[in-house]
Amino acid sequence: MSDEAAREEDRQLLERAQDGDVSAFEALVDAHRDKVYGLALRMTRSEADAAEITQDTFLSAYQHLKDFRGDAAFGSWVHRIAANHALMRLRHRRVAQAAEQELQGPEFTERGSLAEYPISDWSRDAEEKALDAELGTAIQQATDQLPQGYREVFLLKDVDGLSYEQIAETTGDSIPAIKSRLHRARLALREAIDDFYNRDSRGA
């Protein structure tokens, strides 16, 4: 189903759910639960937390169905609720944080030129359907190693598709701060993927 068709179906289900049709609400849950669960799992890295956040998210969506005006897509609305719940949980959790200076990025010469030229252009692999399992593991590890604030922004924007404005509302951070963290997170992850592709050619 195209995105537009899915959104139209959501709009119709939402109207019915707002009129009290529980089965329409359940259909909305079915359509969006994987994405909500995925967001919560990536953010908290805990299956138990992710399951609870998904429950809390859809329960609060149900409780606020009447307030939802339908000017945004239902999917992006529940994504924001889920992001809020996940962030609340993370704020209560004290996890040892990776230091900011551990963030990798490209290195430059004194004159500002790239110190190391990219050896392979792996950008086309992103268009392939299947992802190499080892690369997948390398990406998961690199994402785990990002400092919390960088991980959050990267996951919410690049993986879960929230807008800068939505992230700013959720985290309370300014948009320039969010963009700067997102850029550094992308650089670090790009570096990790690049290392993966060049692991044989560059030597350790």
Binding site: G38, R42, L131, L135, G136, I139, T143, D158
Partner: peptide
């Protein structure tokens, strides 16, 4: 690429 690797 990350989106694919982190899909759940």
């Amino acid at each position: 690429l990350c989106k694919k690797a982190l899909a759940a």
